[in-house]
């Protein structure tokens, strides 16, 4: 239990151990710990970022889905409108066409009637002339009366 040179030896040994511990033990370990801490912090930050961007993406997709739905319903509405328009147009044009055909048919009928009247008239006048010729052959000169008969035919 005497104080002797061991004191100096122990002090030097302690100083050397301390130096070794600082240079080759403490610094690398504390650096590794700090690096790991940073990695974990970065990882957590990245995870939070990922979660955020997931939320944003979900919001965006919901928005675009809504937009698409809206657009689709707009298109359907437009198409329905257009369809009814087309039907209306078709109805209108059919009516016009029908009227046109009707008018044409009426005109044709009238023409036909007129033509028939004309031919009947000419036939009747021819018949009348033929009858009158037969009746009047004897007494009337056909030349003197044909002028009067043509006038009669025109009056019919």
């Amino acid at each position: 239990m005497n104080i002797n040179a061991t004191l100096i030896a122990q002090a030097i040994m302690f100083a050397l151990f301390f130096w070794f511990c600082k240079s080759f033990v403490w610094t690398p370990i504390i650096n590794a710990l700090a690096a790991r801490q940073k990695q974990i912090a970065d990882g957590l930050a990245a995870a939070a970022d990922g979660r955020n961007s997931l939320e944003v993406a979900a919001k965006q997709s919901a928005e675009s889905l809504n937009q698409a739905k809206q657009k689709a319903s707009e298109i359907i509405a437009q198409a329905e409108k257009r369809a009814s328009q087309i039907v209306d147009e078709a109805k209108g044009s059919a009516k016009v066409e029908g009227e046109r055909i009707l008018v044409g048919a009426k005109a044709e009928i009238e023409q036909e009637v007129n033509r028939a009247k004309e031919s009947l008239r000419s036939q009747v006048s021819a018949l009348a002339v033929a009858g009158a010729e037969k009746i009047l052959r004897k007494e009337i000169d056909s030349k003197a009366h044909s002028e009067m008969l043509a006038k009669l035919a025109a009056e019919l």
């Binding site: 239990m1 104080i3 002797n4 061991t6 004191l7 100096i8 030896a9 122990q10 002090a11 040994m13 302690f14 100083a15 301390f18």
Partner: peptide, 12 residues
């Protein structure tokens, strides 16, 4: 239990 060792450290 040797004062040399403990004093050696405390002197540093």
């Amino acid at each position: 239990t040797d004062p040399n060792a403990t004093f050696g450290m405390s002197f540093v």
